[in-house]
Design a protein around this nucleic acid. Structure first.
Lengths: 338, 338
DNA sequence: CTCTTGCGAGAGAGCGCTCTCTCACCACCA
DNA sequence: TGGTGGTGAGAGAGCGCTCTCTCGCAAGAG
């Protein structure tokens, strides 16, 4: 029906005929069984090479019930919100590296519209992949837990909201923020504000918690404005903070993008950074080293987050059990802004 | 053998029994054939819903010879080089949107190591996907042409080097650069330098060509240093240019990242932008609006590049023929740096 | 020399689906 | 009434692979 002139691909059968053995033997050789005599194995390999045989994955899946592919699911918003930092590419690279090592395929699904969500659900519950990795979850998505209940291997990279029984990997948000805010305090800052992230994401919530606890412990006031991790929202929040607390002497922003915007907003307001106001961000995106002044920030190991999440999924797929939570360390990177 | 307690998924057979019809009829209903009487169709739909039936894609693929998935192949370097801009996420988003609309899956392959390349080749030539889209090709990769010769639908998003017969979509590099450099000339700049991109990529080559042709036409000197699109390389190239041509009064950088680094390097060298030296970049990444001063740049429609490439692949898959080249327009975005 | 043992290779039964072919059935016309 | 279409549904043959089961055969034991 289509105009495609597909050359007929050789099948196991063809290889078997050529090598003068049975299909079963070819299958054994192709799948690396050791119970095949050397000369026969060599003959099969030769036939495979001569014919350019490549196994038909669909046929294999049909009988093995495996697909050798893993789905990575991200809300499409993540690619927009983070369009300018390395979170999105970093996760993908990590996942990709780990899957490449395991010789599995990566099926990427950006769930944007409700239709897209429905599609993700249909695809994953239909067992078209061996396992599922969720990243950058917003709100309390019920899908991961539902998949887990169906017995489908699933892991969240970046913990989801709500106490679902789904294993996750995440970075140490609170620890990183605590170190950052303490650093500000130790350097004499007393009016420390924060530009918090979206409160429907664990990353947003925990970074705020880390801030609140640390300033409260030090007996300092909590000066909070909210953003959504983007520059635009960071600029607006910074203006708000300046209006409400003109005497602030430090800002912790829950993302580098927001910190970047804060830097510019502060300059526009005539404040010097770090002399008048110290600024610390979170993420350590590449841009952080190139802002004016360069940005002191909390580094999170994004690549490793993707890798670790993938490893956990693969372990579950392999029938192993995994720890319910894996927390990766964060680190305060000192530059010029604080 | 694995510890998985997979609930047995219902098959077509089960649905057929439940609805009291034959497998063939269920298949017709599921695939939307119109030749099924309404009451029977309803009964089948009810049975599907009650059983939670989801078709087994492997089984379907086996007989239809389709996989309903498309591979997007990028050199892994792209995710590193572009880690901080929107090219990588932008392409992916565009591809994803278009595939979602077509209800196809996206298989993402980042070809890093030679082993990874071999893997990509094995996977794509094995017809495990219906079509292939290459993005950000480096050098003269023979793989696209080889796939095309095998009859596999393939398109390059961002033209590859060498004159392969593979259809491609790309942006109007030369046109954009020409407009940028002309703009500099019209504003009285006479010592216009360029920080060129890597010369093993079409994007790098054509942007340099656009520069050379335009300054040559105006009878101006060609002041060239080379980078690889990254900030680091941009800073080095800028230093080189300043050393070799201290009297330069403008710089066109082949990427925004390099332009960004140039901005900082110029400041460090005591040059004012744009008073002493005008700077124009290429890409229009989000950061461009937040540099000091904000960056005048050539915008390329990245999202659309991904979408257009995907649409072409889908058309080839559908048996239609496509134009050998599709060029998307670029646009000069004026900000403060020039 | 016969019997067991064990190992390497083949036979064949599906995995779940699509699609062609066939057939039953119901008008409708001559 | 017999013939003729047309239409809707079922039967059944695979798609290419894996894997269990069976069997042949060589080697060692009795």
């Amino acid at each position: 029906m289509t105009g495609m002139t597909t050359a007929q691909r050789p099948t196991l059968e063809a290889v078997a005929r050529r090598a003068g053995v049975s299909r079963a033997t070819v299958s054994r050789v192709v799948n690396g069984s050791t119970t095949v005599a050397e000369p026969i194995r060599a003959a099969v390999h030769r036939a495979v090479a001569e014919l350019g045989y490549v196994p038909n994955l669909a046929a294999r899946s049909l009988v093995t019930q495996r697909t050798d592919s893993i789905a990575l699911i991200m809300p499409e918003a993540a690619t927009r919100v983070f369009s300018d930092d390395q979170v999105f590419p970093g996760i993908i690279r990590g996942v990709s590296q780990e899957l490449e090592a395991a010789d599995k395929q990566l099926v990427l699904m950006l769930a944007g519209s409700p239709a897209g969500r429905e599609r993700v659900e249909r695809y994953t519950t239909g067992r078209h992949v061996d396992g599922v990795l969720f990243a950058s979850l917003h709100g309390a998505d019920p899908l991961p837990a539902r998949l887990a209940r169906l017995g489908i291997p699933v892991v969240c990279s970046g913990r989801g909201l709500g106490d679902s029984p789904v294993p996750y990997v995440d970075v140490d948000h609170v620890g990183g923020v605590t170190r950052a805010v303490r650093y500000l305090i130790e350097n004499g800052r007393r009016r420390i504000a924060t530009i918090a992230g979206p409160q429907d994401m664990v990353a947003g919530i925990e970074r705020l918690t880390g801030y609140r606890d640390t300033v409260a412990t030090a007996g300092l006031p909590q000066l909070v404005a909210y953003g959504d991790f983007t520059r635009e929202s960071g600029a607006a929040a910074m203006r708000q903070l300046l209006a409400a607390h003109p005497d602030l002497d430090a800002v912790f922003a829950a993302s580098d993008l927001m910190a970047h915007a804060a830097l510019r907003t502060l300059r526009e307001a005539g404040r010097r950074v770090p002399e008048d106001v110290a600024v610390i961000g979170f993420d350590d995106i590449e841009t952080a080293a190139y802002t004016e002044p360069s940005l002191t920030t909390v580094r999170q190991p994004i690549l490793e987050l993707g890798r670790a999440g993938t490893r956990q999924v693969l372990r579950i797929v392999a029938g192993e059990s995994v720890e319910p939570a894996l927390i990766l360390p964060t680190e305060l990177v000192l530059r010029a802004s604080a």
